[in-house]
Computed example of a mutant assay.
Amino acid sequence: MPTPRVFVMRHGETEWSRTGQYTGKTDIPLTARGIEQVKETGRMVVGHGKLMDPSRIVKAFISPRQRAQMTFDLFTGECEGVEIEKDTTEDLREWEYGLYEGMLTKDIRAARKERGLDRTKEWDIWVDGCEEGETPKQVSDRLDDLISQIRDIQSPHMHDDKPADILLVAHGHILRGFVRRWLGYSLDFRLLLMLEPGGVGVLTYDHRSLEEPAVLVGLGFPLKEEVS
């Protein structure tokens, strides 16, 4: 009897993710390489007896940006014969970067220092947020709203065998923030996380308890006799 899971997937490569530019509201498509990243991830992890069984996914929450929408469509193309319910939500849009849209971290820090900011420490998005963009609290609040929705879906199925897995498709900063909030940490909690373009992470609960949200740092795969 599997514990409900939440799969967090970052969109495939874009021109700006390749160069490291902050991409919030700028709506750019996947590169050719990004498309292949997503397709290959789907081939490897989606299917009966694989990491992500589409028959157990009851809902997908997707960022409205086209790079996330393209990723979802390509990724779920591997889900033959199964249609996943899709909810496009602003809760999963990327951090609103404001003045920092399209910039690199080093350039943001240099520009802030030129304006007399950050004299005692370097700028950190998780602590300082973005000028004319979102604060950590604003981001945290919308992530908490989504987490509440997910737990409402999963809570009735913590001790039965009914499908209750959730898929999220979004962006690098917002998904790393989601993991922090899933675990109950503030966004400025020093938890270094990486999520590659086209990559998938897995969240769940320890002891089948809503009070013990967890990250799966080691995955077990079904035995052959269990999926035949």
Rank of each mutant, 00 (worst) to 15 (best):
A214T: 15
K59T: 08
G81S: 09
V6P: 01
S228N: 09
I108G: 08
E212V: 08
D118T: 07
W95V: 02
F178K: 02
V200R: 03
E94S: 05
Y22D: 04
E212I: 10
L167W: 12
K137N: 09
R65Y: 14
T19I: 14
K121R: 15
E226D: 15
R112M: 09
S228Y: 10
I35D: 13
R43K: 15
V8L: 15
E83T: 14
V179S: 10
M1L: 09
L74I: 08
K86S: 01
E226N: 11
I108S: 05
H159R: 13
R181C: 01
Q37F: 07
S155E: 12
P156M: 12
S63G: 01
E85A: 08
P2N: 12
D124K: 03
E132D: 15
D128T: 04
V179F: 07
L203C: 08
S17I: 03
R10D: 05
E13Q: 15
I166W: 00
R151C: 05
H207P: 02
E211R: 14
R176E: 01
D53Q: 04
V139Y: 04
G172W: 00
W182P: 02
Y22E: 06
E94M: 03
E83W: 14
D165S: 11
W16E: 05
M44L: 14
D91P: 07
R10A: 10
G81C: 07
K106T: 09
A170K: 11
I166A: 08
K113A: 10
E78R: 11
H48K: 15
D206V: 11
L192E: 12
L187M: 05
D145I: 08
V38C: 05
F221W: 10
E36D: 15
R65H: 13
W126T: 07
E225V: 12
E226F: 11
D161A: 12
K25I: 11
G98E: 06
H11T: 04
P64Y: 11
I57S: 11
E78M: 11
V169Q: 02
R142M: 03
L92D: 02
M9S: 03
E132Q: 15
I150N: 07
W182I: 06
L216N: 06
H173M: 12
F189C: 01
Q37L: 08
L216E: 07
G49N: 00
E15A: 15
A110Y: 10
D124F: 07
I35A: 13
L167R: 03
